[in-house]
Amino acid sequence: MVKEIESQGFPVVHMCTVVPISMTVGANRIVPTIAIPHPLGDPSLSVEDEKELRRKLVRKALVALETEVDGQTVFEV
């Protein structure tokens, strides 16, 4: 899906936990996330801290979208 949407002209940032899979699939902008069942959250945190964590991840995704890349690039948070 990542590749097909990108090939239609949209920069895509792939937010996922298992980065090697994203590399194999061919995503160009990758932001590693927290865990497979809750990529953008962490139930062990308080509601506020969890939201702050999510904000950080999404801000990194926006940075990825604003960054020119020549090939597959992982944007670590």
Binding site: K3, E4, Q8, G9, F10, P11, H14, M15, T17, P37
Partner: peptide, 21 residues
């Protein structure tokens, strides 16, 4: 993804956040 991209074009979307589990 091809069909989704059509909807995105119609609404002038600039970029996509795609999440996977």
């Amino acid at each position: 993804a091809k069909e989704i991209a059509k909807f995105l074009k119609e609404d002038h979307v600039d970029a996509v956040i795609l999440t996977s589990t």
